[in-house]
């Protein structure tokens, strides 16, 4: 058996376009990922979360809060949750995330169609529109965005840095006929708040252009890789505590010089 596929939540999944597998129709962006515990007590990616209730908290600030507040106000449920697309429906992870089946339509799309677009001549809309089935409310243990940006402290209580990305490895239980679950296998920790890594941490050569790579890597020098075993606790305290001292953490670059890049 080949080594399990390794993906990065931020780099490969978050903010990618989600399309329907059979006709490439656009469904949404992957606004957030829902995490749940499997039978071994390990976190795995259970669903893609989409819509303003997933995007708002990631944007944060006034605009993000406003987005959540307005959506909550307009949704009929008492305590609405973001639209979720179970990971077992995801058939391909590439430049877009392909999902099988027929994912539920966004409420805003339906509203604009029924009230604005369909009444215009030539819109191609039929006279009536079926009510969508009510969303089944399900909530996972947490969202991946709750891990990103969190402060990481080592066994001695010193700050190591903050989480820039979450490493996932496709070695969990079978989710569907085709795919294993993506389990959380580690964290990429950067020493300073210097934004995203943009994928320039991958591989010894990494992607070009040379100057951009040098600048991005320079900003993130001293980045470390934390395996999930090294994490002591991450909830409910605001910081992620490690069970080892910072000096035992692997340099991010070591990881990529030993592993073939994916």
């Amino acid at each position: 058996m080949t080594a399990a596929r390794t993906l990065h939540a931020q780099l490969h999944l978050l903010d990618r376009q989600v399309v329907r597998a059979d006709d490439a129709r656009m469904v949404s962006k992957a606004d957030d990922l829902e995490l749940d515990y499997d039978r071994d007590g390990r976190l795995y990616v259970s669903a893609l979360l989409t819509g303003p209730l997933a995007l708002g908290p990631r944007i944060g600030g006034v605009i993000g809060r406003l987005m959540v507040a307005v959506t909550t106000l307009l949704r009929p449920e008492e305590d609405p949750a973001p639209r979720r697309i179970p990971m077992r429906l995801v058939t391909d992870i590439g430049s877009a995330l392909k999902v099988g089946g027929d994912p539920a339509e966004a409420a805003l799309e339906r509203w604009t169609r029924v009230h604005l677009i369909a009444p215009l001549p030539g819109s191609g809309a039929p006279a009536h529109d079926d009510e969508p089935p009510p969303d089944r409310q399900h909530r996972g243990a947490m969202r991946v965005s709750e891990l990103l940006g969190r402060t990481v402290t080592d066994a001695e209580g010193r700050v190591v840095g903050q989480v820039a990305d979450v490493r996932l490895s496709q070695d969990g239980h079978l989710l569907g006929p085709a795919a294993n679950a993506l389990r959380v296998s580690g964290l990429v920790v950067v020493p300073r708040n210097t934004g995203q890594l943009f994928g320039y941490e991958r591989g010894p050569g990494g992607a070009g252009p040379w100057l951009v790579r040098v600048v991005v890597r320079r900003l993130h020098r001293g980045s470390r890789h934390v395996t999930w075993d090294q994490v002591e606790s991450f909830a409910p305290s605001p910081e992620i505590r490690l069970r080892v001292p910072a000096s035992e953490l692997a340099d991010l670059r070591e990881l990529y010089s030993t592993l073939p890049s994916t």
């Binding site: 656009m26 949404s28 962006k29 606004d31 989409t50 995007l55 966004a106 819109s123 191609g124 809309a125």
Partner: peptide, 12 residues
Amino acid sequence: FGWQWGKFVRPR
């Protein structure tokens, strides 16, 4: 926002 866009589908 990841919405369906384009003139290659019907406006509806």
